[in-house]
Design a protein around this nucleic acid. Structure first.
Length: 278
DNA sequence: AAGGGTGTTGAAAG
DNA sequence: GCTTTCAACACCCT
């Protein structure tokens, strides 16, 4: 489900609710979520650990514990809910963290794509999944030069490049569709055909769109709700994502939907024309 | 009513 | 290497 703004919203809301709580027990109902160690080790190591903080990098959540960091990725539909430990277990609740105060934090994931891993405290940036990630758009080092060095002469469509987490981390399908529309760049344009002005626009638009989406509590288009069950509001600001057949906000041309790199892609055929004879 | 689609990502294949 | 395709899974829409 979530991209950077949704994960950030979850981080901020969940933090209020769970920091200071101590894990009494972990119940695992579907162990393929847990990567790197056995679910038994996972359960043993987490007992008596207190949640000290919640952090985030890209779309990854970090639960900072006493001796470990729990790295969680929600993939398409992962969610955390807080319930009493006495509440019945939902069909899609796969990992239940029972706290000493008899509340529980439940990892709910309809499609079971999400992942969790446990690393020693302070080692989260050394984890295999984190180490390969590119910069977040907010990083001062996220520049035209950085992007051009990363893509070199790549013929890949710009949309696929922006979705590649090893190049820039945190963007997903919704926000990439929106960012390309704002910069009037066709999603299928080969990355090496982009001008410096294009790259500069993409950097600025990435920062702006993510910032606005965070301020709006994320985007709820299908199933995303923040952990307290609150819907985001950025769906009201979307210009192209999910708008197939609706008029473009700038030129009234009907928004088109195509597939790029296997992902549904929305764009305005007038505002986002191909260039360089593509 | 089967098949295609879904805020993702990595492994495999070419 | 680099790039594309597909699988992991459940559910919702035609």
């Amino acid at each position: 489900m979530p991209e950077l703004p949704e994960v950030e919203t979850i981080r901020a809301t969940l933090k209020q609710a769970v920091v200071g709580k101590t894990i009494a027990r972990v119940d695992v109902y579907y162990d393929k979520i847990i990567h790197g160690i056995s679910s038994k080790d996972f359960q043993i190591k987490l007992v008596r650990q207190t949640i000290r903080n919640l952090d985030r990098y890209g779309k990854y959540l970090f639960f900072i514990l006493d001796d470990y960091t729990l790295i969680s990725h929600l993939r398409m539909e992962g969610k955390f809910f807080l319930k009493s430990d006495a509440d019945p277990i939902d069909k899609h609740e796969h990992i239940v963290f029972v706290f000493t105060d008899h509340t529980s934090m439940r990892y709910h994931d309809t499609r079971k794509f999400g992942t969790m891993e446990l690393v020693p405290a302070g080692d989260e940036r050394k984890s295999k999944s984190i180490i390969s990630l590119g910069l977040e758009p907010f990083n001062d080092s996220f520049t035209i030069a950085y992007l051009q060095a990363k893509i070199k002469k790549s013929c890949r469509p710009i949309k696929s490049v922006l979705l590649d987490q090893t190049i820039v981390c945190g963007l997903g399908n919704i926000y990439v569709n929106e960012i390309l529309w704002r910069c009037q760049i066709n999603p299928e344009m080969k990355a090496f055909h982009l001008t410096n002005a294009d790259w500069g626009c993409l950097i600025d638009a990435s920062r702006l769109v993510l910032k606005q989406a965070i301020a709006a509590g994320g985007t709820t288009v299908r199933t995303y709700y923040s952990s307290l069950g609150v819907a985001g509001r950025f769906q009201n600001e979307l210009k192209v994502h999910g708008k197939e057949g609706k008029p473009c906000a700038v030129c009234q041309t009907l928004i088109a939907k195509i597939k790029v790199g296997g992902r549904g892609t929305f764009y305005c055929p007038t505002c986002q024309k191909k260039r360089n004879d593509e």
